[in-house]
Design a protein around this nucleic acid. Structure first.
Lengths: 144, 144
DNA sequence: ATTGAGCCTCCAGTCACTGGAAGCCCTATA
DNA sequence: TATAGGGCTTCCAGTGACTGGAGGCTCAAT
């Protein structure tokens, strides 16, 4: 199987497949003409990677998950630990984004959005404490 | 004012301040010894940038926001439009993360997390449809 | 005079790809 | 048989927003 067909079947673009080989996630064989020769196993691995990436796992997590998948003496606790750590990271990101969202939507609501220059969004960014006043506390959090 | 004091007062690390000068966000003057010589204006701008970044605006958005801030003939609608577009992007990210979170937490719940190798998380990543079956739909979405 | 902190520039690395250039290989058609 | 094209190859560079480190200059205090 050539890279094009594998890309089609796994949903991973050719460029990315080559990249994954570069960093050692897959090791396709080679044909006499220098083309990569993929087996079913490779397609399977790539699909695995695609799903893991879609869940937001880092490449290094994917590497570990793949090696656990291939390790018949693994303990499911190892996998679960990685997943739980990742879930925690996702929760933190969500919390941070929701905090931004909160502040931003308040600011947007308070802005007329017309032809006049007066703008509470800019005033707040400029540090004017007479307006909505929620961003600087956010900035403090981000700095920590 | 030297860079250290400015970093302290604005909350932006020295490295980042130099970077912001590199990309033209600020233009501090120079002393005879080659040190950057910051004025109050610069500190103010850096604090502005810090707050905008804390709200998740991209550097290019920050550049535009800063120029609007300095433009007395701006229209608040221009600022509001940028903020609204950013809010939409944040909402999309939150939605995507929540979808990951959903799937991941289901998988985690279904995994015993003990010394045995059986693991629904890995089964799902491997594409086994007999298990929880939520990731592949997620992968499809991400591919689009 | 020396020490140490603070400042300078420049280069490289992060993460996970993605785009593009230059060139080889394979198949089909004229 | 010549050629056109599409697919494959490698290698290099760029993305965003910094961050770390090396090597070296300046300044204030001892």
């Amino acid at each position: 199987m050539n890279i094009g067909e594998v890309a089609e079947r796994s949903g991973i673009p050719p460029k990315t497949i080559r990249y994954y080989e570069d960093i050692g996630l897959i090791r396709p064989q080679r044909s006499g003409n220098g083309y990569r020769a993929f087996r079913e196993l490779d397609v399977h691995k790539l699909a695995f990677l695609g799903r893991a990436r879609a869940l937001g796992f880092s490449i290094e997590d994917c590497r570990t998950l793949l090696s656990l998948y291939e390790d018949e003496s693994r303990e499911s606790a190892q996998v679960k630990a990685i997943a739980e750590e990742h879930l925690t990271a996702i929760d933190e990101k969500i919390t941070q984004l929701q905090s931004m969202r909160e502040t931003l939507s308040h600011l947007i609501k308070s802005c007329h959005g017309d032809h006049r220059p007066d703008c509470p969004i800019l005033s707040d960014l400029a540090g004017d404490p007479t307006v909505v006043r929620t961003v600087s506390s956010l900035a403090n959090k981000a700095a920590k």
